[in-house]
Design a protein around this nucleic acid. Structure first.
Lengths: 337, 337
DNA sequence: CACCTAGATGAAACCGATTGCATTTCTTCT
DNA sequence: AGAAGAAATGCAATCGGTTTCATCTAGGTG
């Protein structure tokens, strides 16, 4: 079998407990003993069993990542790799590994979280997005398990979260269009199940209101977070309305929106201006290059991991949420009216 | 504390071992006992501790993913999310979770693998790419640990791997340019440390040779796998040569190559044709839309996970490697000469 | 009726660590 | 010199399961 702590102990003529203390660099062990044990470990090629260690110490040095929808789907929107990139930077710095559960739907997602938490497989969890109907957040909160949510939850009471100011961001986008003379502005988002969609819809409405433009229900559509989703939503709008501009809360969807506009015989941006969200790498290269709200996806990842780890290290953290700033990136998909 | 198997045992009036067997649905336990135990589990809200289970059974139901370079860097090339997408589909289907180690360099990468293997944290490992100087592959092989490599290793003896036919793919790309009348064809790849770069360079040379075009060392450049890397490599070439076409082994790099060409006053594709590799989502939207070799990144992920899990389930698998087909996607970045 | 066998369950060792408490050996102080 | 305290280390319980082997019961057989 493999070399265990007992083998090392035997070789170094000490008790297993002493070896354990040497590994932890416990100051109560004398220099000489430590050296002897280190030598034995070296000679035997000993490496501690992380599983056994976790079982005894109840610490895994692992962070759980929960993707929304299916893991498969998540990876196809550049948003998620980018936030994972941020998370991985911090995780690496703080010596945490990442456990990805691979769920396929909301039911399995719950299952996955329970498995992680009850199965004691991770020290904390990052939820990569919050649904309004999320049972996970109340469950985790009641369970007293450390977690942070990317995206402000509907009920943010005693939960840690990281997000942009989505209402402000949507206002920013909408105002930009209004300032350019648009008044028939459509709004396309992902499902209103997601808090982020709700917030951005609110921001959109607010901007309209502040500028004395009545909100028209027919100009707002939702569909899934994909190119096709954007296409379908835009098609539905164009069948009944003639917007001169549209706010799309996801760049990938925005590509579908552009495609739909073109299919219907409109020119972008000449006939219809489009502003997106997320500033994914693709956006700069799109045709036309997409004007978009940069939500600092990478920082969302960084901050969420930092917040979680801070929470893990001390019981209480002073701030329970972090707002990551956004900025408007002006390119070529919007023109003045 | 949490409810454990002992609590369930007590409540159901059986021994812990019986509960364990019920969990495993062991046929040697009578229907009645099973029902009684299930009821107890239900009532107590019992959930097995995955860590303890792993320790005893030496099975984790987890696959380890090792990224090349830093995890951070990997996530910024769309290739990796896409292969992970493939992996996650299979992992989900087969009920495996994914453990990502977050290493920053080659040294840490080795450390990460040792930690996963010796720490018994995963059942198998997928290496997301193979370096020529990789110590990992011989180490894992000697250790007898199940793993599969994406990218044919230099020494493929008794290692499982999944890859495209990279020589053939590069020939395909180069021949395509030759057929369009190009003879001054440059070749830009990532570091020759990667087997994939080496293979593609060979394919490029082969195509030249078969068409009686002499290989010019000055037309081949390497740099890092990024937009900037492509830019720098192309700049170096343009300072001494005047290619009419270039084969770039990565679409992201190809964008840099295009930028360099434009900065030097060339038009793409009119003055210089460019063919890329990978067919990342961005490529279709680039300006000009990129002609590229589609290497079926998603399938690379699928196949590697399937191969690993097959290996995990039976000791030996009939095939030790899988070749994923490629195809040329013709868009607008190449013109006839 | 004694014996054997199959089926159901339990007892206890084990997986490989960590940790609270006990023990031993020195110092040091009065 | 004896007691007290500090320093170094060991013992054994524990974490929460799995698994081997033994035990017990009941039914079948000659």
């Amino acid at each position: 079998m493999n070399v265990t702590i007992k083998d090392v102990a035997k070789k170094a003529n000490v008790a297993p407990s002493t070896v354990s203390r040497v590994i932890a660099d416990n100051p109560r062990i004398s220099k000489e003993t430590k050296e002897r044990v280190w030598k034995a470990m070296e000679e035997l090629g000993y490496y501690p069993n992380a599983i056994a260690r976790s079982l005894a110490s109840k610490v895994t040095n692992t962070l759980g990542l929960i993707m929304p929808r299916s893991t498969e789907e998540a990876f196809s929107n550049p948003f998620f790799p980018e936030v994972m990139r941020g998370i991985s930077v911090v995780a690496h710095r703080e010596k945490y590994d990442l456990l990805l559960s691979t769920s396929g739907n909301q039911e399995e997602e719950k299952e996955a979280v329970i498995n992680m938490v009850k199965g004691k497989r991770v020290d904390g969890i990052i939820l990569l997005s919050s649904r309004t109907t999320d049972e996970l957040i109340p469950w985790l909160r009641d369970e007293g398990f450390p977690f942070v949510v990317i995206g402000k939850p509907l009920d943010a009471k005693s939960v840690y979260w990281v997000d942009n100011d989505n209402i402000g961001a949507a206002k920013l986008a909408t105002n930009y269009l209004i300032k350019h003379g648009h008044r028939e502005i459509a709004f396309i988002s992902g499902s209103l199940e997601y808090v982020v969609s709700l917030d951005r819809l609110d921001g959109y409405k607010l901007a309209l209101e502040e500028n004395g433009i009545p909100f028209k229900r027919e100009l707002a559509e939702q569909d899934e977070f994909s190119e096709d989703g954007g296409y379908r939503a835009m098609m539905r709008i164009l069948e009944r309305e003639e917007p001169t501009a549209v706010v799309v809360t996801d760049d990938v969807m925005a590509f579908g929106v552009i495609r739909a506009a073109i299919d219907k015989g409109y020119k972008v941006p000449d006939d219809i201006s489009i502003i997106g969200f997320n500033n994914i790498p693709l956006s700069a290269f799109a045709n036309p290059p997409l004007t978009t709200i940069d939500i600092s996806t990478f920082d969302l990842g960084i901050k969420s991991a930092e917040l979680l780890i801070a929470r893990l290290k001390q019981k209480e953290v002073d701030t329970d949420h972090i707002i990551v700033p956004v900025k408007l990136v002006e390119r070529k998909s919007c023109v003045a009216r």
